[in-house]
Design a protein around this nucleic acid. Structure first.
Length: 687
RNA sequence: CGGGGUGUAGCGCAGCUUGGUUAGCGCGUUUGACUGGGGGUCAAAAGGUCGGCGGUUCGAAUCCGCCCACCCCGACCA
């Protein structure tokens, strides 16, 4: 007879908890380890059994609820969080007994957390299945060679976990599964008739993050749903776009059903490649990502991607204007950053020209044809260069910040570079942001005062004037035009364009007259149109109707499952604890027994729990012999949507106390007649 | 990887500067009593290789060296 049977047999027993403990401590509870009598239903009498009940209304998130008791599960709540926990989700998930840290970026998911993850996963599965995807499971451990074909062993770099096996062979702990699934498809799918396909899994992923942080928000081991779709075409029925749109809808459904406040925003597809990409962000001031939204058109994008609406050119044209004074060189020692220089020179960052050097990552063929190429991007001191926009404007798909050593050798005084540094050098494109390509300030009605680098260590120059000081006339250099595809396009190596990050207040790119507003978010989902990046690299081809070999077109779609749980807490908590939305709450209702030893309270709790279960409501019974204050504090911490308190006062009045977690502080709840409890609970959960 | 910080009981911390009884405190835990609607009171108890290794010393939580772990800022980041 197992321990669990014995415990169950004693679940509601005649003895109080203390007396039980005493007897257990003396070595034997009842003198024998009995098999509890069972009724045909298999339920143990005296436990919280299902009683016959009338038909109940049902809530939408679950078919049938469960009841668990606090005393027979693990919910280690604490008054204080470990001092490494800083962000609210980490603190509260720890204090409420959901997670424990095992190592840097590695966590235990305790029973409550696992229930949340289960509910989230169930929603993900339902929506993925409904969208035509099929669940499968791939291994987390992969031969390292798999990553070589796609070069992700290099591009992923140190973020790829490496594991040596006993034979000394290198394996990887998978950060995602593009390679594995592409390999799988290569072996299984060879006819266009088998497409389209969309396969997904929910699985533990590994990334050797340089700096794990913020609890579950950035882990080295985490749970992710990843889906991969395969198509013969981009457009049309069965094409990539169709699957992408279906995933967009599925994600919208998933996060809506979860009860999360989220935004879908346009995103940079990054090193993963591909044409289009959206991120799903939980809206939350503490989020790591900045998004910009246009209130008029609904356009929303990550800063990394966000376009800026047309900014009118200066009235006199770009670069045109008189100097503000004689060019003056100033010694600026110990000023590594823009802010330092500004402070030292008492100049506002808006009057600085910031120059950032990129090196074009050429293929050997390109290198032979064009030689080494650089791009010098110039923005105003208070703006940030946007790498994606630099790529687009320059027409170079692969660039990277130049290595300082190499840049210095090339004649760029890193940290003190001015636009002049690009002049007179072969293979250097000068890319000037619209806000930096100004010589006459229309708003101020006078010439623009610029400070920029002195092109030698610890020096800057004041009164920089584009026409006078650049070393060539920008007006004559044909830089006025608004064209793209610069470096090799024969444009005399100088261009004006949009190369900076969007900011709040910038004109919307989608609605004239509307201004962008900024917000923060936590990325919980990301969908990509991959195209043929992986199928090309790994030789995944298929015969089409015309018997032509065609590379398979792919999409991939991720959801950070464990991160979503944490993001939900970030989004929804107060000073007392977590406030779970009904759909993700580990249980819907907490039934607090004021006196767990009291027969009437136990009886009512059992019946109530059973009825609630029948209605699909999950119940956690706080049957601990604790003081009321402790139970109430823990109830708020754990944050289940509804708390039903069973105490003598309410019971004498024929009811139980009903309180919603999201109710304003100080709200003591109200008494609901026993017969109405289930309906009230279901109504509130569905509402 | 650069900068900063922390490691002493399950959690939060003191002690270290200036080496010297048996390493303390609060919370939590266990036992008992009193209690019983927002972390209660009293009494008793258990719980520590002071992150690790090495060194200095008659003697190290304390001083020195090396290493490890964890956190924060930055770099990085489908």
């Amino acid at each position: 007879m197992g321990e669990s049977d014995r415990r169950r047999g004693e679940g509601t027993y005649p003895l109080g908890r203390r007396a039980r403990r005493r007897r257990l401590a003396s070595g034997r509870a009842t003198g024998h380890v009995a098999t509890p009598a069972r009724d045909p239903s298999g339920l143990v009498p005296g436990d919280f059994v299902s009683l016959p009940s009338r038909p109940m209304p049902t809530i939408t998130t679950t078919r049938r609820g469960v009841t668990q008791r606090w005393t027979t599960t693990l919910i280690p709540t604490t008054r204080e969080a470990p001092n490494d926990a800083e962000v609210p989700s980490h603190v509260l998930l720890h204090r409420a007994g959901f997670i424990r840290q095992v190592g840097a970026g590695i966590y235990d998911y305790l029973p409550l957390a696992w229930r949340v993850l289960g509910k989230l996963s169930a929603i993900v599965r339902e929506e993925m299945d409904a969208a035509g995807a099929s669940e499968m499971l791939m291994p987390a451990l992969e031969p390292f060679e798999l990553f070589k074909d796609t070069k992700r062993d290099e591009t992923y770099g140190d973020n790829l976990f490496r594991v040596k096996d006993r034979k000394g062979r290198l394996n990887a702990l998978a950060p995602t599964h593009e390679e594995v699934i592409t390999e799988l498809m290569r072996g299984c799918v060879n006819s266009f008739r088998q497409l389209p396909l969309n396969l997904y899994q929910i699985q533990t992923k590994f990334r050797d993050e340089a700096r794990p942080r913020a609890g579950l928000l950035r882990c080295r081991e985490f749970i992710m749903k990843d889906a991969y779709s395969f198509h013969l075409a981009v457009e049309g029925a069965g094409g990539l776009n169709e699957a992408y749109d279906a995933m967009y809808c599925a994600y919208t459904n998933i996060f809506t059903r979860c009860g999360l406040d989220f935004s879908a925003v346009e995103a940079e597809s990054g090193p993963i490649g591909g044409s289009a990409s959206h991120e799903f962000m939980v809206n939350c001031a503490s989020g790591e990502d900045t998004v910009l939204k246009c209130p008029a058109s609904g356009y929303a994008a990550n800063v990394e991607k966000c376009e800026i609406g047309l900014r009118p050119a200066p009235s006199k044209g770009y670069f045109a204007g008189e100097p503000t004074g004689a060019l003056e060189e100033v010694h600026t020692p110990a000023c590594p950053g823009i802010d330092d220089v500004c402070k030292f020179l008492k100049v506002k960052p808006q009057h600085m020209l910031k120059s950032v050097l990129f090196k074009v990552q050429s293929t050997p063929e390109q290198l032979a044809k064009y030689g080494e190429e650089y791009i010098l991007a110039v923005v105003r001191g208070d703006h940030d260069v946007n790498e994606g926009k630099v790529k687009e404007l320059s027409g170079c798909t692969s660039i990277a910040m130049a290595e300082p050593m190499e840049a210095v050798a090339k004649g760029f005084a890193i940290g003190f570079v001015s636009p002049r540094a690009a002049v007179g050098k072969k293979g250097v494109l000068l890319l000037v942001d619209r806000d930096a390509a100004v010589a006459f300030d229309d708003a101020a009605g006078k010439s623009k005062f610029w400070v920029t680098g002195g092109d030698k260590p610890d020096y800057h120059v004041k009164h920089f004037n584009w026409q006078r000081d650049l070393g060539k006339d920008p007006l004559a250099a044909g830089a006025q035009g608004e064209h793209k595809g610069g470096l090799r396009g024969g444009d005399d190596h100088m261009m004006v364009g949009d190369v900076r990050n969007a900011l709040e207040g910038d004109p919307s790119p989608r609605a004239a007259g509307s201004k962008l507003i900024a917000a923060r978010g936590i990325e919980v989902g990301h969908i990509f149109k991959l195209g043929t990046k992986y199928s090309d690299a790994m030789g995944l081809t298929i015969l089409d109707q015309a018997q032509q070999k065609r590379p398979v077109i792919m999409g991939c779609y991720g959801i950070g499952v464990s991160r979503t749980m944490a993001a939900c807490v970030e989004m929804s908590h107060d000073a007392d604890g977590i406030i779970w939305p009904a759909a993700l709450a580990p249980f819907h209702v907490l039934v607090t027994l004021m006196k767990p030893d009291d027969a009437r309270q136990r009886d009512v709790a059992a019946r109530l729990a059973s009825d609630l279960n029948t209605a699909g409501v999950d119940v956690l019974l706080d049957d601990r012999d604790e003081r009321p204050g402790v139970k109430f504090k823990d109830a708020d911490l754990v944050g289940l949507p509804i708390r039903l308190t069973l105490g003598d006062k309410a019971l004498d009045a024929g009811g139980v106390e009903f309180k919603q977690r999201k109710a304003p502080a100080g709200d003591k709840g109200h008494v609901v007649p026993l017969g109405d409890v289930v309906a009230s609970v279901v109504a509130k959960l569905n509402g």
